[in-house]
């Protein structure tokens, strides 16, 4: 199996060289044969003619050598591709229509898959992803914390409201301080999402109040 792949691969990647070698091999055969015929007493031109005749149809045998390595399949596939490219170039309108319908088809498929992937195949890793909504004001990119508190107090529609914002933070690494982006989140954040840590403890509702202990007991 390895030998098969090696011989075919070598012929494909260095095809020009492979063809040259094959031609050289057959030519050499004729030369060797002609030399022997000359030594047997034939005139040089006659020896050459006879040697060529004895080998037979060189192109035929070359084709059989190509077939022995399965090169015919690749050659024909390549010819088909070239033919297809020529035809497509000759009718640009048809090509454009085909490309557009392909693009639309693939695009629509991608959209449908993205939706199904998010909803069915890979939902958010929280307790009830289908009950989770993202609230946003049309007028402002974000909601202030006091506004959030007001919304939460008067909320009758949702079970609870959580808020978060991105915040620049400093991270002390061994090599010095590094600027990283973190998130500030309300104390009920993990409770509402229903996320449990594998180890240790997350913060809970009430941890964001003024009298909350700085560290909780395990």
């Amino acid at each position: 199996m390895r030998a098969r792949m090696r011989t075919t691969w070598r012929a494909l990647v260095r095809r020009v060289r492979w063809e040259k070698d094959l031609d050289k091999e057959l030519r050499l055969h004729v030369e060797f044969r002609a030399e022997d015929l000359r030594r047997a007493g034939l005139e040089p031109p006659e020896a050459e003619r006879r040697a060529r005749l004895e080998l037979g149809s060189r192109e035929n045998y070359k084709e059989e050598c190509r077939r022995a390595l399965g090169l015919k399949w690749f050659d024909e596939a390549w010819q088909d591709l070239q033919y297809a490219a020529r035809i497509l170039r000759r009718s640009p309108l048809f090509t454009a229509a085909a490309l557009v319908s392909l693009a639309l088809g693939i695009g629509a498929n991608t959209v449908v898959f993205s939706v199904i992937n998010a909803l069915v195949l890979k939902p958010l890793p929280v307790r009830a992803p289908q009950e989770l909504y993202f609230l946003q004001s049309n007028n402002f990119p974000s909601i202030s914390y006091p506004n959030y508190r007001d919304l939460r107090e008067r909320n009758v529609t949702f079970r609870d409201l959580i808020a978060y914002r991105v915040a620049p933070m400093g991270l002390d690494t061994g090599a010095g301080a590094e600027r990283v982006w973190g998130y500030l989140a309300t104390g009920n954040y993990f409770d509402v999402l229903g996320v449990q840590p594998a180890l240790g403890r997350l913060f809970h509702a009430g941890d964001d109040l003024r009298r909350a202990p700085a560290r909780s007991q395990f």
């Binding site: 011989t7 080998l55 045998y61 059989e64 050598c65 022995a68 390595l69």
Partner: peptide
């Protein structure tokens, strides 16, 4: 003689 080569390949 020519048939030798396809066989060798």
């Amino acid at each position: 003689q020519g048939a030798l080569y396809p066989a060798l390949y």
